[in-house]
């Protein structure tokens, strides 16, 4: 086994361990972890299967195997960024609705407290 294979396998394992830790500690939601787990899995497969990259490049008709790596990963990253934008948009929507709800509730609370005060004053008189 080549040295680079060992290095990548060890790094992959560390990466998976770190992701697992984040999930266990509740810092990373599972749905976002899926893509990271998948990516590492792909890396693990190609670390063991050295000829794999050449085979895949042939399959897709790419002359230089490293180009396949770049293309595939840039594509994956773009998709993931888009996914993150969708998540952010959803969060923004939720925050807007929450803020509006809070403003409306605060107003109702104020009104109630003011009415309460007025009532107390009347009683005092």
């Amino acid at each position: 086994m080549a040295r680079i294979q060992l290095i990548t396998i060890i790094l992959d394992i560390l990466f998976i361990a770190y992701i697992s830790r984040l999930i266990i500690k509740g810092k990373l939601r599972e749905e976002y972890a899926i893509i990271w787990c998948l990516c590492t899995l792909v890396l693990v497969v190609f670390s063991f299967w050295r000829k794999g990259l050449g085979v895949m490049a042939n399959l897709f008709g790419v002359f230089e195997p490293p180009n396949l790596v770049f293309t595939a990963f840039i594509f994956a990253i773009l998709i993931y960024l888009l996914h993150l934008s969708v998540v952010v948009s959803k969060l923004q929507n939720n925050i807007r609705n929450l803020s509006q709800e809070i403003a409306l509730l605060k107003e109702r609370l104020d009104k109630k407290e003011n009415n309460g005060d007025a009532g107390n004053k009347k009683n005092a008189n």
Binding site: S99, Q100, A103, E107, K111
Partner: peptide, 14 residues
């Protein structure tokens, strides 16, 4: 005047 006090800046639409 009745005030609706937003806890975050939402912009004119919000």
């Amino acid at each position: 005047t009745t005030v609706l006090d937003l806890p975050m800046n939402l912009g004119i639409g919000g």
